[in-house]
């Protein structure tokens, strides 16, 4: 398994009240899976994704990525894992406003193999997300949808084994959404593992053999695993 969650639990305190965001979640994702976690706002999807990515510490339980428990490694190794193994697509575009589109895409390479993965590679990905001619634009000069596409391009620049995406098509128009899903489909076909959290139930229709999971009040359940894997 490329990702394995065991008895994951996370509780927040809001307004003096303990709120269980993730409640005893067990999840196994195999390499090459395309897992879609569906759920309403506040169901704990983003918290689960954040724990898988090593950004949030669970109260209890374990997260193993490539067989290594996230929280048993040093901060440096965990950071390296985030840089080399995972590509993040945030709920919001999360671009650095003072960098151009191309510079934002190249950010994950700053401490990696910058020479090997050149600007040309970044331009290729820009072309894939339909923004070939906007490489020198600053985020403020781009629409919300374009910013989202830049963030998606950034997630792919390191050719990560896993993509963790939080509402990746949230504020995109239908045509752009289709373009992005096509990009996902292409990378998935090449073997990239996807874990996507969304409340867009139509997302599942765009991919081959997706695994559909549901998150309700912190509890994860899988929708007929045998059927979704075979679909």
């Amino acid at each position: 398994m490329i990702i394995e969650c065991r008895n994951l639990k996370k509780t927040y305190v809001a307004d003096g009240q303990a709120v269980t965001a993730v409640d005893d979640v067990n999840l196994s994702i195999a390499a090459g899976d395309f897992a879609i976690i569906l759920g309403h706002s506040g169901s704990g999807k983003t918290t689960l994704l954040s724990m898988i990515g090593g950004l949030t510490t669970p109260d209890s339980g374990e997260v193993l990525v490539n067989g290594i428990e996230n929280w048993h490694q040093s901060d440096a190794r965990l950071t390296e894992m985030r840089n080399q193994t995972i590509g993040f697509i945030f709920q919001f575009a999360s671009l650095i406003p003072t960098l151009t589109a191309l510079e934002n895409i190249l950010l994950p390479l700053s401490f990696g193999n910058r020479k090997a993965a050149s600007s040309r590679q970044a331009r290729d990905i820009l072309a894939q997300v339909g923004l070939k001619d906007r490489e020198n634009a600053f985020p403020a000069q781009l629409s919300g949808g374009q910013q989202r596409r830049i963030a998606i391009a950034r997630a792919f620049i390191n050719q990560p084994a896993i993509i963790l995406a939080d509402e990746p098509t949230g504020d995109l128009d239908e045509d752009t959404e289709q373009e992005i899903l096509a990009v996902f489909h292409e990378y998935h076909r090449q073997g990239t593992t996807f874990v996507v959290v969304t409340h867009n139930v139509h997302l599942a229709d765009s991919q081959e053999s997706p695994r559909i999971l549901h998150m309700r009040k912190g509890v994860l359940s899988e929708e007929n695993p045998a059927r979704t894997r075979a679909a």
Binding site: D75, E80, N83, F88, F90, S110, F111
Partner: peptide, 9 residues
């Protein structure tokens, strides 16, 4: 953002 993208402290 930088930390998420793999920058260390």
């Amino acid at each position: 953002i930088l930390k998420v993208l793999g920058w260390q402290t």
